[in-house]
């Protein structure tokens, strides 16, 4: 009992120490007000609009419509493949950036952030310049029988470019924190470098790798600008889910747009939760 009382008193003292600083009420109040105006009112408008529909109507507009369903399939499959490609090459890029020394390393490290800074419309039009049949790589690839621009592979390429920094920037600190002692111990105990990688290094890096994948995947699901240019936007083939929202709005079908919006919103909340769990797992792993 006394202990608990003491602890409570300590907490109170700590709290009071914090409250020496001025401006709590006004800063929290302003934050909540601004948050409410800019984020929460629009968010609730979408939820109210979508939930105001009958279930039948919602199902018809968001699930049963084959064109909408096809757009989910395109979005999911392209984001999944792009996420996998990024997991492999993002891992390699992060490994090379942390472990090796070579000229131009700082430049390589800096340019990884380019997709964060480059407007997505620019990425999109640049990829068209590269992969359209008259483009630098497009003609050559079509000679090999692979049509990239205005087809599904183009969407994958756009999402790969957009998602790359997420994997690299999640993996880099994780690789930096690897303790060289465990690798040395494995080597001294007779493991080959390949065995050390598979049994010692890779298990530690699985949680951050999954986090990076989930971040890239989530970004890929919501991405619009770059895909809009390179996808060609053919109904049933290369329309992505965000584009369907735009199309519904252009037809003044507000309910249809809100229904698809709610489906995507739920998907991104689920991913957000997953990412938070993965990060907690990473922290847990690195602390034990």
């Amino acid at each position: 009992m006394i202990r608990i009382g003491l602890r409570e008193r300590c907490v109170r003292v700590i709290n009071r120490q914090h409250s020496v600083l001025p401006g709590f009420g006004i800063s929290l109040g302003l934050t909540l007000m601004y948050l409410g105006l800019v984020v929460l009112i629009p968010l609730s408008a979408l939820v109210v609009k979508a939930l105001g529909m009958t279930f039948e109507d919602f199902w018809q507009k968001a699930i049963a419509d084959p064109r909408v369903m096809a757009s989910y399939r395109v979005s999911l499959s392209a984001a999944l493949v792009a996420g996998l490609v990024n997991s492999v090459f993002g891992f390699i890029l992060a490994w090379v950036l942390v472990r090796y020394q070579f000229p131009g390393k700082r430049l390589l490290d800096a340019i990884v952030d380019l997709p964060f800074a480059l407007p997505t419309a620019v990425s999109g039009i640049a990829l068209v310049g590269l992969y359209a049949s008259s483009g630098w790589l497009g003609g050559w690839l079509e000679g090999l029988g692979l049509k990239v621009a205005f087809a599904w592979p183009g969407i994958v390429i756009a999402l790969t470019m957009i998602g790359l920094p997420f994997v690299v920037r999640t993996m880099q600190p994780a690789i930096e924190q690897l303790e060289s002692e465990s690798e040395e111990a494995a080597a001294i105990l007779g493991a080959t470098r390949g065995q050390t990688f598979r049994r010692v290094i890779l298990p530690i890096l699985v949680p951050p790798l999954l986090t990076g994948f989930a971040l890239a995947f989530a970004r890929g699901l919501g991405e619009f600008g770059s895909v809009y240019f390179i996808a060609g936007n053919l109904p049933m083939k290369t329309e992505i889910a965000p584009l369907m929202i735009l199309i519904k709005l252009e037809q003044y079908d507000y309910h249809g747009a809100a229904a698809i919006g709610l489906v995507m919103l739920v998907a991104s909340f689920a991913l957000l939760l997953l990412i938070n769990l993965l990060q907690a797992w990473t922290r847990h792993r690195s602390s034990t």
Binding site: L43, A45, L46, L221, G222, F224, G225, P242, S268, L271
Partner: peptide, 17 residues
């Protein structure tokens, strides 16, 4: 939250408001 939400959905919300 805005980082997790697709920009298109952000636009849709504003149209609905």
């Amino acid at each position: 939250l805005p980082f997790a939400i697709s920009p298109v959905i952000a636009g849709l919300m504003l149209v609905l408001v």
